[in-house]
């Protein structure tokens, strides 16, 4: 992982970049031979990172193959992304959260990130090969209304707590998890805090104090001054 893509081009030179690309391409090929059509998409950031997206049905198989077939024995993390745009309009200018019910404007279209996607909830996990120093981020799409998926514990023991976290934060059901209860939140907590439609009630009451951060600096041009004074 270099700090910038620009740095990659400058420091490592073309030859090395091609070489590492080949390394990651070869990995993708090995995964494709194992999983076949279950490998839906992949994305390579040259000399930096690799993303793959797999079919939900083959999630556990993918984990087992990564661990045994590719030597990615190191489990890094597992989490979920909610791709729904926030209904609260949290922008720099917004002093308080917008009320999603009073808002009449059309919600923005959902746009998934690297390696694509076609659902609101996307599960993603990362594993590393500590011998080859290679990391892979694996994504899979979950059902919009009742997200559920098989547990990854057979492949990686460490997934236990991460899945409990994803369960309480996003309401994802992990089938076969031995102890799927809240990890952080008190037992009676209602809602899934990290879903985009979960409101932060304190923000409804108080204006965002972050707004004062736009302060006048010496040497600012006229436009900024008028902006700040209004």
């Amino acid at each position: 992982m270099s700090s910038t893509a620009e740095a990659t081009e400058e420091t490592s030179g073309d030859q090395e970049e091609v070489a590492t690309d080949e390394r990651r391409e070869a990995l993708v090929e090995r995964i494709r031979t194992e999983l076949g059509d279950a490998l839906i998409d992949h994305h390579i950031l040259a000399d930096t990172d690799l993303w793959i997206r797999v079919d939900r049905e083959r999630w556990v198989d993918t984990g087992l193959f990564l661990r045994d077939g590719l030597g990615c024995a190191y489990f890094n993390f597992l989490s979920v992304i909610d791709w729904m745009p926030s209904p609260f309009g949290r922008e720099m200018e917004a002093e308080v959260d917008a009320d999603p019910e009073a808002d009449t404007k059309e919600p923005e279209a959902m746009q998934q990130g690297v390696a694509g996607g076609d659902s609101r909830f996307q599960l993603f996990a990362r594993v590393n090969n500590v011998i080859d120093h290679m990391g892979i981020t694996i994504k899979t799409d979950l059902d919009d209304d009742t997200p559920s998926i098989d547990t990854w514990i057979p492949a990686y023991d460490g997934a236990n707590w991460h899945e409990r976290e994803a369960f309480e934060m996003y309401g994802v059901d992990f089938i076969g998890h031995p102890n799927l209860i809240n990890l952080y939140l008190p037992t009676g907590f209602e809602g899934n805090p990290l879903r985009k439609d979960f409101p932060l009630l304190a923000r409804r009451m108080k204006p965002w104090p972050g707004i004062v951060d736009v302060e006048q600096m010496p040497g600012d041009d006229e436009e900024d001054e008028t902006e700040a004074s209004t």
Binding site: A73, Y74, F75, N76, V130, Y156, D157, G158
Partner: peptide, 8 residues
């Protein structure tokens, strides 16, 4: 080592 890796 293998347990440590599997737990991350």
């Amino acid at each position: 080592a293998d347990i440590a890796l599997s737990y991350g």
